[in-house]
C-alpha cells in the first residue's frame, strides 16, 4: 500500500510538470487553433536558460538562501523564455496567420528541429549536469513515504503557477481577451482587441510556464541535453488532448493523469507484465484511446453557437 502511495505521489510530481507544459499547448491552440510542436523545445530552452542564469549569477546566488536563489533562476528564465516564445511566434507563425493551418503546423515542426539542432550547436550534444540549487534532502514526517525537497519545490511551484495562470485568465482584462479571442477572433477585434497582442501574450505566457517546467524537470532529473524536450513535449501534448484541447483546467488534469499512469506502469511493470521501458508508450496508448472514445477530451466541451 505504501509503495502504491509512493508511486502515486511520484507520478503527481512528474505530472505537475507535464501539466505546466500542456497548458502552453492548450492556450496556443485556444487562440490560434494549431499545435505548436516547438513547445517542447521551449521547455528544453527553459532548462538551459536556467543552467546559464545559474552559472552567470553564481557569485550572487551563492550568497543568497537557496529558496531565493531558485526563485531568481526561475523568474529570470521564465522571462527570457517568454521573450523567446514571443519571438518564435513573430518570426515563424505570424507571417502565416492567414494561411491554411497545415502550413503553420509544418512550420512548427521545422521550428522545433531548428531549435533542437541549434541547441546542439550552441549547448553541445552531450548530457550536461544541471546544478543542484535545491538541497538534496528528504522531507520527513510523511510516514513511510519518501519526498525530496526538490519534489516539494516542484509541487509548490507548479501549483502556484497554475493558480497564477487561473487568475490571469479569469480575472484580468488580458485573460478575458484571450478567452474572447479563442471563441471568436472576428468579434474580439470588433470589441477593440488587438488580436496580435493577445496572441503574443499567450505565447509569452505559455513559454514562461514551459520554461518553469524545464527547470523543475531538470531539478528532478539533473542531466540535460538539446533533445530533452521531445518526449515530455509529446506527452504534454497528449495531456492537453486528454483534458480537451483548448481547455485550461483540462490540460492540468491531463498532465497529472499522464504523469501518474506513466509512473504506475513503470513501478508495477513486473506485476503488469509490461517492461518498464514501455512507460514512455503509455501516453500514446492513452492518446489512441481518447481519439477513439472521447475525441473532445475529458473536459472538452463541444462549442455551440446559435446563428
Amino acid at each position: 500500500m505504501s509503495q502504491f502511495l509512493q508511486q502515486l505521489l511520484n507520478g503527481l510530481f512528474l505530472g505537475s510538470i507535464y501539466a505546466l507544459i500542456a497548458l502552453g499547448y492548450t492556450m496556443v491552440y485556444g487562440v490560434l487553433r494549431f499545435i505548436n510542436f516547438a513547445h517542447g523545445d521551449v521547455f528544453m530552452l527553459g532548462a538551459f536558460t536556467g543552467l546559464y542564469v545559474n552559472k552567470l549569477l553564481a557569485p550572487v546566488l551563492a550568497a543568497l538562501p537557496w529558496p531565493v536563489a531558485i526563485l531568481i533562476v526561475l523568474v529570470l528564465s521564465m522571462a527570457i523564455c517568454a521573450a523567446l516564445g514571443i519571438l518564435i511566434e513573430w518570426l515563424a507563425y505570424r507571417p502565416l496567420r492567414d494561411k491554411p493551418r497545415l502550413n503553420v503546423l509544418i512550420t512548427a515542426i521545422g521550428v522545433s528541429l531548428l531549435i533542437e539542432y541549434t541547441g546542439q550547436l550552441v549547448f553541445g550534444a552531450t548530457q550536461r549536469p544541471f546544478p543542484a540549487i535545491i538541497p538534496k534532502v528528504n522531507v520527513g514526517g510523511l510516514g513511510g513515504l519518501t519526498v525530496t525537497m526538490t519534489q516539494v519545490i516542484v509541487a509548490v511551484t507548479a501549483v502556484a503557477l497554475m493558480i497564477g495562470l487561473r487568475f490571469i485568465v479569469m480575472k484580468t482584462k488580458m485573460g478575458m481577451a484571450m478567452r474572447a479571442l479563442s471563441l471568436n477572433p472576428t468579434a474580439s477585434s470588433l470589441m477593440g482587441v488587438n488580436n496580435s497582442v493577445v496572441i503574443s501574450f499567450t505565447f509569452g505566457l505559455g513559454s514562461a510556464l514551459a520554461a518553469a517546467g524545464g527547470i523543475l524537470y531538470a531539478s528532478l532529473y539533473p542531466s540535460i541535453e538539446p533533445f530533452m524536450g521531445i518526449l515530455p513535449g509529446l506527452k504534454a501534448f497528449v495531456a492537453a488532448v486528454l483534458g480537451g484541447i483548448g481547455n485550461i483546467p483540462g490540460a492540468a488534469l491531463g498532465g497529472l493523469i499522464i504523469g501518474v499512469t506513466e509512473t504506475l506502469v513503470a513501478g508495477y511493470s513486473d506485476v503488469l507484465g509490461i517492461p518498464s521501458g514501455y512507460r514512455d508508450g503509455v501516453a500514446f496508448v492513452i492518446l489512441i484511446l481518447i481519439l477513439l472514445f472521447k475525441p473532445s477530451g475529458l473536459l472538452g466541451k463541444v462549442e455551440r453557437e446559435k446563428v
Partner: peptide, 12 residues
C-alpha cells in the same frame, strides 16, 4: 459594428 449572426462570445 454589430456583425451579422450576432457573434456573441458563446462561453462567456
Amino acid at each position: 459594428h454589430v456583425p451579422e449572426g450576432r457573434m456573441v462570445f458563446a462561453n462567456l
